[in-house]
Design a binder for these strands. Sequence first.
RNA 1: GUGGCCUUAGCUCAACAGGCAGAGCAGCGGAUUGUGGAUCCGCAGGUUAUGGGUUCGACCCCCAUAGGCCACCCCA
Length: 427
Amino acid sequence: MPTFRAPRGTRDLLPAERAAFTKLESIGRDLGRRYGYRQIETPLFEQVAVFERGIGEVTDVIEKELFRLAARSDEGEAWALRPEATAGIARAYVQHGMHTWPQPVKVWLTGPMFRYDRPQAGRYRQFWQWDVEAIGDPGPAVDAELIELGARFYREAGLDDALLLINSIGDAVCRPAYVAELKAYFREHIAGMPEVERRRLESNPLRLLDSKDPALAVLQARAPRITDRLCPACAEHFAAVLGHLDALGVGYRVEPALVRGLDYYTRTAFEFYRAGAEGQQQALGGGGRYDGLIELLGGRPTPGIGFALGLDRVILALGDSASQEEGASPLAVIVGAEPAATAERLRVATDLRGEGLVVRADLSARKLGRQLESAARDGAHFAVILGDELAAGQVQLKDLQAGTQRPLPLADVARELRRADASHHHG
RNA sequence: GUGGCCUUAGCUCAACAGGCAGAGCAGCGGAUUGUGGAUCCGCAGGUUAUGGGUUCGACCCCCAUAGGCCACCCCA
């Protein structure tokens, strides 16, 4: 067993898997460009207070999953690795006075997030998200635009069965009254409730709605629904969001029990799951509106909405097809019979690379047969064989796929490879 | 954070009832001193996750720890 290994809940992305991430990142980059969102980057860690105040101190993410850093004694701050992207972006919005920019400010970010919980397949302590935010527009059309953007990401990534669950969780006007009503309702039936759920009644009553405890099933079915208790403004907003989604052809399922785990959400809340797996805990992504967040972090009242998608989970859902990206096979490998002539192989490869060609040099002392074998297994299309004829400026160009070979002046190799490469890509 | 299952070579897995740790694949070399994917031969790779315990003797039984997986909690 190796002495050292990746820390618990983290893993190395070996080239095949890293390539799958790169593909998703390029989808995100392209979608960001097409939808008018610009890339942003914030630190991997922030003051703990940014997360506590933004996300909410009594949430799971803060209470038990926050990856706190041991603060250095000569610094007054307590820091934590970011568990999500929105709080940091909101902090940056306030810090840089982005309210003076044309509104809304639309940005996207991709990178690792950190949560200190118990690892499982698809659940890591370091995981990757693609995150989009639209800050400064209160209207329901932005909600729909952003949700449709999320749905499109899954489609372009090859996941055709992403299912959108959506709900409205009200705002400061209507949610407090609803929560009070919900508490009163469950309290009446507290006798039949398990201990865990009784405690949750006080700490986070909304959570009772999506508890999987079968003892609650009947109670849940009869519980008052937030969607029936929305204030007129929230109800109108929600109806408009759904209307826009209909108009855009985005399928969804209204899920009154959908609650988000972060305090900053208002009104629109949504999550994506694989169809048929929506009862499980492995969400593909989620987001919502956070009209109070900027103010919480010291800015003026500013509405916003965001969405984060788990790259690890998309790749997991794609299965083997995700990692079957073809690797970086070279167009040609420079091989030679003379073990001592590695300098020649290196020089020829360097010249061809200077011409923009994808070339690997076999710098080993292996005999020619092994070099060709290795080149073929590497997926190379051609081998350029340097032999005695090199003194006369001649090499052998071998097509490893066709099995054919012909002599060629060294000076013509670049042109020949480029032509073969072009016809290969276009044909 | 709670409960359960698991851990043997880089990978996938063997190893009787507690009795000498093996194979395939991958890597390297040779058969072929300048021609590949096939075939054959060989080399290397292990403190059986780690640390204790039981036993004449432990990959095997017991305890602890670490890591992985599953179900919760909750989310990406």
